[in-house]
Design a protein around this nucleic acid. Structure first.
Length: 290
DNA sequence: CGAATGACCTGTGAGC
DNA sequence: TGCTCACAGGTCATTC
């Protein structure tokens, strides 16, 4: 499911229920995710206070007062849902769902946290591509999960000059290069398609062959599409939900993604095409993306 | 070395 | 109604 905007949306919604709060109770239901939980997961998380809730690439990072960081990846279909009761439902700018019967006991509810917000937070992931891990906070960047992860596209260091340097000489299609987390962290299939469309670049063009004058528009398009998507609560195709349970809205602003056969939105006579690159669908307009 | 492919899972919608 | 197939936001190991 989630690319950077979806993860960031979840983080924002999770923060009032988690940040500064103690995990009063932790339960794991089934451990056979892509990466199994550590055996002592409960012992290392229960009773700990969450100092900060951050994001790096598509990972959520909850820094615990034990010196460890709880690392959460939502895979393709993961959700973090917050439930609360009565007037506690309203925390910060968010209104959470009241827990339905059996909240936390669903078929694919893998972890349940209770916090002293008070709130119940349920990690649900039916495809089980997600993961939860515990890593020493001080050594996070050296950990296997984060070593080699690329630049944050919304950071000040990401700009046309950086992008030009990152793409130079690359013989892989620009679509694949932008999906490569070692170059830029957080882009996924949707936002790569959208950014390339907005910058008027063909996804098939080799990364090293992107025209100089298109680099700055591409960097700008990447940042703008990510920011706009975060503001819209991310994109919900099927699985993504915010921490409140609400879907995102950015799918209504797609210009190419999932628009195969529909007219190009660039007031050009083209029709959106779908091709497969590296096993993933790419949507683009062959007329105005060159 | 870098780049393509398949594997990992379950669920859903389309087509018959 | 029910079957089968294709496909879905990501990452990782393996092969060329």
């Amino acid at each position: 499911m989630p690319e950077l905007p979806e993860v960031e949306t979840v983080r924002l919604g999770l923060a009032p229920a988690m940040e500064g709060h103690t995990l009063t109770h932790v339960e794991t239901r089934r451990g056979d995710l892509r990466v199994p939980f550590p055996k002592d997961f409960v012992a290392r998380t229960q009773g700990r206070k969450v100092r900060h809730l951050r994001r790096r690439a598509k990972y959520l990072l909850a820094d615990l007062d034990s010196g460890e960081t709880l690392v959460i990846h939502l895979g393709m279909s993961g959700r973090m849902s917050v439930y609360a009761e009565g007037h506690q439902r309203k925390l910060g700018n968010y209104v959470y769902q009241t827990p339905p019967n059996g909240a936390g006991h669903g078929k694919h509810d893998h972890v349940v946290f209770e916090t002293d917000a008070p709130a119940r937070i349920v990690f649900n992931d039916h495809r089980r591509f997600g993961l939860m891990a515990l890593v020493e906070t001080a050594h996070l960047e050296q950990d296997k999960l984060f070593r080699g992860i690329g630049i944050e596209p919304l950071s000040d260091d990401f700009n046309a000059a950086f992008l030009a340097k990152a793409l130079v000489g690359k013989k892989t299609p620009i679509k694949s290069a932008l999906l490569d987390q070692r170059l830029i962290a957080g882009l996924g299939n949707i936002y790569v398609c959208e950014a390339l469309f907005r910058a008027g670049i063909s996804p098939k063009r080799l990364a090293g062959a992107v025209k100089k004058e298109k680099i700055a528009p591409l960097a700008a398009a990447i940042r703008k599409v990510l920011r706009d998507a975060i503001a819209a609560g991310g994109s919900t195709l099927r699985d993504h939900a915010q921490a409140t349970g609400d879907p995102g809205n950015f799918q209504h602003h797609f210009l190419v993604y999932d628009r195969e056969g529909l007219p190009c939105k660039n007031k050009c006579p083209g029709t959106v095409k779908r091709i497969v690159q590296a096993g993933r669908s790419t949507f683009y307009c062959p007329k105005c993306q060159t």
